[in-house]
Amino acid sequence: MSAITHHTPEAMLAAYAAGTLPHAFSVVVATHVSLCDQCRTTLAAHQAVGGAILDDMDSVAVSGGLRSALMQRLDEPFSPEPVYDRSGIYPGPVMEALKGEPPRWKTLGMGVRQSILSSGGEGSVRLLFIPPGQAVPDHTHNGLELTLVLQGSFSDETGRFGVGDLEIGDESLHHTPTADPGDPCICLAATDAPLSFNAFLPRLLQPIFKI
């Protein structure tokens, strides 16, 4: 894997460490951190700071009812969540979102496919498969979009993004991502609002594809 040059912003890593990042973005950040030594080190520093702050906080007395309810919950049988390891190009956080199953690809046209991992009021996260040389229709953003490359690479108006690189798009970014020659580009993408396509046909199909 080539050197990662596009990283998760530190403010976003801090939000992830604090547990305040929306689920869709958390999946992408967790996946990037699993690939990037630099961001993993920064995240560990934020987690250490958070732990130190908790240690310094004054304790707060709780009611007897709350304590009893907590102890009762601790006595209940515990079923640990399964732990998913990397499978092929898909790191553990992606396999967790896939629940250990292969992606269920659905065609978007022109060879482009997607597999929606989750979708809800706070946003959506999906896998995108883009054949070499194929472009995603030019668009801008109504919110925030995180795109992490898992295989191949793509280029747009801002530069080239290879495996492990994270592109962050907002309302100011108007681009036409195009998969580079070589392997198909497979990305993990999360959005908190629908994209804003410029061409009529993508806008027409947008509600169907949930992009």
Rank of each mutant, 00 (worst) to 15 (best):
T107Y: 14
I89G: 10
M71P: 03
S68P: 12
F78Q: 08
V83I: 10
L70W: 10
R113T: 09
E76P: 07
A52V: 05
P131E: 09
R73M: 08
V62S: 13
L35R: 00
E76Y: 04
P102V: 09
L54S: 08
R73C: 05
E101K: 05
Q38N: 02
L66T: 07
G111V: 08
I53E: 15
L74Q: 11
W105Q: 08
E122N: 14
T107W: 13
G109S: 14
P137G: 13
T107G: 15
P132C: 06
P137D: 12
D37K: 01
I116P: 15
A45D: 15
G109I: 12
R126G: 06
S118H: 15
T107N: 15
Y84W: 11
G100Q: 03
A45F: 15
H46Y: 14
L66S: 05
A135M: 08
Q114I: 08
S124H: 06
G133T: 08
R126A: 11
G133A: 09
L74M: 10
L74H: 09
V112Y: 12
E81R: 07
S118T: 15
M95F: 03
Q72P: 01
A44I: 06
P91E: 01
P132W: 12
Q72K: 07
A135G: 11
A97T: 06
E81K: 05
I116W: 07
L54W: 03
D75V: 00
F78G: 01
Y90I: 00
P131H: 05
V94I: 02
K99H: 04
V125C: 13
R104K: 04
G120N: 10
A52D: 15
S68E: 14
A61Q: 05
C36R: 00
C39K: 01
G111A: 11
R104M: 04
P91W: 00
T42D: 14
L35A: 00
E96R: 00
G50A: 06
P102R: 07
E96N: 02
G92M: 01
V83G: 07
R40A: 10
G92L: 02
